[in-house]
């Protein structure tokens, strides 16, 4: 993928490991950019599939965030709710290059790519 398709959102150092920061997108849903304790970065829409809780404010553990409103656990990798809960939050392709974070422009514009449903809908 060429640089032109990616949006540079700044250096990795601006997000403390184990936390997330928000990125409002005018005309689309706010995003949350996560930096896990293992040093990975993820971008997802900042709204829990349950009741739209701000996932950026949840506790991050492994590659999972726990929503601050009702403790749903959301996988940062694919946006899916874990355990008995069902739901999915859109994820935005992200890459880190030379210490800077890039998001896929098309996905930012479109409010994130819905993860493919596990089964075809009836």
């Amino acid at each position: 993928m060429m640089i032109g398709d990616w949006l540079d959102i700044g250096p990795v150092g601006q997000i403390e490991a184990g936390t997330a920061r928000t990125l409002p997108v005018e005309g689309a849903q706010e995003l949350a950019i996560f930096h896990t304790l293992r040093g990975e970065f993820f971008a997802i829409v900042n709204a829990c599939p349950h009741k739209k809780g701000p996932l950026s404010q949840g506790i991050v553990h492994g590659d999972v965030v726990t929503c601050p409103l009702h403790n749903w656990n959301i996988s940062l990798r694919d946006g899916r709710a874990l355990g008995d809960d069902e739901g999915c939050v859109p994820t935005i392709p992200l890459r880190v290059d030379a210490g800077r974070i890039y998001l896929l422009r098309a996905a930012v514009l479109g409010g994130g790519a819905e993860a493919a449903p596990a089964e075809a809908e009836a």
Partner: peptide, 21 residues
């Protein structure tokens, strides 16, 4: 301050986006 501030804001500009710190 990082806990209270957005990382940045993305605004549409013409055909693309621009980033506003």
């Amino acid at each position: 301050a990082d806990l209270h501030q957005h990382l940045a804001t993305v605004r549409p500009s013409d055909s693309s986006f621009q980033l506003e710190k």
